[in-house]
Design a protein around this nucleic acid. Structure first.
Lengths: 155, 155
DNA sequence: TTAAATTAAATTGTGTACAATATATAAATA
DNA sequence: TATTTATATATTGTACACAATTTAATTTAA
């Protein structure tokens, strides 16, 4: 009995984590054709979304919003800068910080990207309510896992 | 009115996809300390799980199980081979195929890895039922997104 | 049976992710 | 104030992930 229950847990847990991992990659693939049209990757698109909302922020703030560190963001931001979409400037108040802001081209991209989410909704073929419920559960799970990670790293 | 509704959809969709993406990476981080102990990455661990279930399979079958292609699997499998955990052999019946199987060391690893899922369950701090419900919803979403991808690529 | 089409892996090139480390600046404190 | 500590970003190295192409083997069809 005990053995079977344990085995069930093992499979359940492995499969849930795998399903989330696979789902994440499949969703990125679903974005791909639309992102190709505007010339950015999914990670770069997420950075742009943060900037469209906040206009300006530091690398650290971007990292907190997207759960990414400077090892990922620095080269990614250099590519966005090379593409003419953002500016990277050292803060004059605190020269450790790098301020990221949008160029006019970066702002223009917002209009071109506006159609993407609705196209994605069609792709999943789920109602707004279903997606909303999923989001609630998912944010809860993300919160739990993230806090488990941060409390573990503090040890 | 119409504008507000559209905007809500946009945010909802962006946030759901982002949350799944972030959640996937946070879960991988939660696995990390346990995977470090047995010396494999999360992707390599997934390959080992498939092999522990099936004993032997081709690269293509692994790819179908894990939603990965040979571009990802070939170097990954070479690393598992270099670590002495698997064998890679051309099929004699069909020399296009490469058969992947476990070494005794690869089988031994199963025992060391047995504790991982229960440790992960503790990490999320959710009941078996909650995780089970999430898994059902998630498999549904994965199925929808995957079929959207495969039907799109057939065009 | 030969030629064309298909299939299975491998290869190449780009772009993340992330741990670990380095560097430079700022804040705290002795 | 000089020194330590903390903070913000960059760098380095490893390992995916995947599109696109290549190579070799098998099927299909002419």
């Amino acid at each position: 009995m005990q053995e079977k229950s344990t085995n069930t847990e093992l499979l359940l847990d492995n499969h849930l984590c795998f399903t989330i991992y696979a789902c994440s990659r499949e969703i990125t693939k679903l974005y791909q054709p639309y992102l190709d049209k505007i010339g950015v990757t999914y990670s770069q698109y997420l950075v742009m979304i943060v900037l469209w909302e906040r206009e300006q922020c530091t690398v650290k703030e971007l990292g907190e919003a997207l759960f990414l560190d400077s090892g990922t963001l620095t080269p990614l931001l250099k590519r966005l800068q090379a593409a003419g979409l953002i500016l990277r400037e050292r803060s004059l108040q605190d020269e450790r910080k790098v301020l990221i802001s949008l160029t006019p081209l970066g702002w223009d991209l917002q209009k071109e990207a506006a159609c993407i989410p609705s196209k994605m909704m069609e792709g999943t073929d789920m109602s707004e309510k279903e997606l909303g419920d999923l989001l609630v559960q998912f944010k809860d799970l993300l919160g739990r896992v993230h806090s488990a990670n941060t409390s573990a790293s503090k040890k």
